[in-house]
């Protein structure tokens, strides 16, 4: 599955959430969407998932529009993991993961052996087999996120669009989930993942797209995207760089000099203010 967006713009109320964004995700690669809060990552992911239309530009799925592919087929081709982590009713973990098979079943058709196998694979991959009998209120926030990821994996769609899948996870499960996405890509699947962790983005993604103010600031190889200039411009931070076992990593370290200077000036001004009578 190849998703290609050309010049898409989205306006949310009075805010230009996306402005002329070009984007491509191919089978066999992980594309990381990074950028500061409010830069348009979730809006881009929702537009790619056909959950909201773009005001300008177009999105193509293997060269076809969403209407040409059809909603039912698209739901089998693209699995979407929302950022919110919603689960309104405290359903059992296994039943919730099983919802991932709905796109493959006709109305009121009972789950087939293939469905049950896909559910088991997804639960094994996300390390939630031991939680299957628990309800969503009986597990932690990180476990909930893994359950929801398992639901998305159970679709076994060629393309996975995941919005901050590791945000609530401990380091071990962050690494496990990213490794899982890596394996999905290695097996020929496509993954687009929204990340805030630059170290994970640098290590696990084949390509990165850095958004800032609804525009693409940089796109390409992680080394080419995670430059000091780009990170200072988009996030306002300086980073520490290193290398371990041949892989480069970056760790946000301090506000960039410009911002730090601004903060110091503010603090000085505050201290110099005369006390009110």
């Amino acid at each position: 599955m190849r998703i290609e967006a050309q010049g898409i713009s989205v306006r949310l109320g009075s805010v230009d959430a996306l402005q002329g964004v070009d984007f491509v995700a191919e089978a066999g690669e992980i594309v990381g969407l990074i950028g500061p809060n409010g830069s348009g990552k979730t809006t881009l992911l929702r537009t790619l998932a056909n959950l909201r239309p773009s005001d300008r530009g177009r999105v193509r799925y293997e060269g076809r529009s969403a209407a040409e592919v059809g909603a039912a087929e698209l739901s089998r081709q693209i699995a979407y993991l929302a950022q919110s982590g919603e689960a309104h009713w405290p359903m059992r973990v296994e039943a919730l993961v099983a919802l991932g098979r709905l796109p493959h079943r006709r109305r009121f058709q009972r789950s087939a052996a293939a469905d049950r196998a896909a559910i088991e694979r997804a639960m094994l991959a996300t390390d939630i087999v031991s939680l299957r009998e628990r309800t969503m209120t009986q597990i932690s926030g990180g476990e909930r996120m893994r359950v929801l990821l398992a639901r998305a994996l159970a679709v076994e769609a060629p393309m996975l669009l995941a919005d901050e899948p590791v945000a609530a996870l401990d380091p071990l499960h962050q690494l496990q989930v990213m490794d899982l996405l890596r394996k999905k890509a290695a097996a020929g699947g496509g993954v687009v993942v929204v990340l805030h962790d630059l170290a994970l983005a640098a290590r696990f993604c084949d390509r990165l797209v850095l958004l800032d103010g609804g525009r693409v600031l940089a796109a390409g190889d992680p080394a080419a995207v995670l430059t000091d200039d780009h990170l200072a411009t988009a996030f306002g931070v300086e980073v520490v760089r290193g290398e371990h076992q041949g892989a480069a990593f970056v760790v946000p370290w301090a506000p960039s000099e410009k911002l730090a200077g601004f903060a110091d000036e503010q603090a000085t001004n505050d201290n110099n203010k005369e006390p009110r009578p």
Binding site: A49, L51, R76, Y80, A82, A87, H88, L96, L99, L148
Partner: peptide, 14 residues
């Protein structure tokens, strides 16, 4: 059932 996971997820399931 799918709406349990929110409107976006339900819509993504077709």
């Amino acid at each position: 059932d799918s709406l349990t996971l929110g409107e976006d997820t339900a819509a993504s399931m077709g």
